[in-house]
Computed example of a mutant assay.
Amino acid sequence: MSKWRITFIVLFCIGLLLAVWAFIVGPASFRINEDDIVVDAWPKECNGLRVAILADLHVGSPYKGRKSLQNLVEAVNKSQPDLILLPGDFVIQGVVGGKFVPPEDAAGILKELKAPMGVFAVLGNHDWWLDAARVEQSLESQGISVLEDKSVSLVSSECKLRLVGISDFWEGPHDVKKAMQGIDEGETILAFTHNPDIFPELPAELSLTIAGHTHGGQVYLPFIGRPIVPSSYGQRFAIGHVVEGGKHLYVSPGVGTSILPVRFLVPPEVTVLSIFSP
């Protein structure tokens, strides 16, 4: 066998293995990712607060159907978070190999989520493209509070927070001023939204903003980065902890897939974020 033929066979096998990983192993996997961050304005009374982030569930995308969501809910409850945030995109449109799951079905499973400080949601662009009112009603009817440009006070022992939900940057009003109505000066504010592109517009008094939407690019290539990120800022807000101008942002890569059912070196995850003061 010639050297060129051997080289071709080796490269073909490597390509096949990478394709299997990207289109089967990656999307079908799931992990609870425990991450710690330090936030400048975080109160010592809330040190170690554990926030579970269930972003971009896209229920119905390949390998992420009803049963998968049930398993995810069980895993999140076992991780015992203090607070659970659902930053939007509960449904799918047109993902290759996916099957639409009504938001009512997804909400009926998500109602089993448990956390002492509550379970809260905002809507994502896919939820708006389907029917924002329908998705919101589905969640609210199961006891999950939807904070579209609204806030709520949270108290757990000595920890006091104002949780602010900001509607989607692409499709929602994302009225930050409305969302922050009634908030007193000096309150510790934890915000969450779907699309991190709103981050540069947010006021400095937000201690931390949590978002999803980007899926971490779904694909990460060593030495190259993330070829496709649905953001006007490219890879700037693609994933993880970002600090700019004294403001803190955390972007979870989420669970499902969109457009193509591919995940390569960006595994589906629920992020359990522990937040500490300096």
Rank of each mutant, 00 (worst) to 15 (best):
L113I: 00
G172T: 08
F169L: 06
A121R: 01
I166T: 06
S167N: 10
V135W: 12
S167I: 09
E136D: 07
V152D: 06
L163F: 04
P173Q: 08
L113W: 01
A179K: 08
E148Y: 06
V164Y: 10
W128S: 04
D184N: 12
W170V: 02
E148W: 05
G182A: 12
Q181N: 15
A179Q: 13
H126Q: 12
G182S: 12
A132W: 08
G186I: 13
D131R: 11
L161F: 11
P173G: 02
E136L: 05
L161S: 07
S167K: 03
V135S: 11
G118L: 00
E171H: 10
K177V: 05
L147P: 09
R134G: 05
K178Y: 14
V146Y: 06
G172H: 10
V164H: 07
E158Y: 13
L123C: 02
D127R: 04
A179E: 12
D175I: 08
S145W: 15
L139E: 00
D175N: 14
C159H: 06
R162D: 03
D127F: 03
P116W: 04
H126G: 01
K177C: 05
I144L: 02
P173L: 13
K150T: 06
Q137G: 12
D149H: 07
D168K: 13
D127L: 03
S151Y: 03
M180R: 09
Q137F: 01
W128L: 04
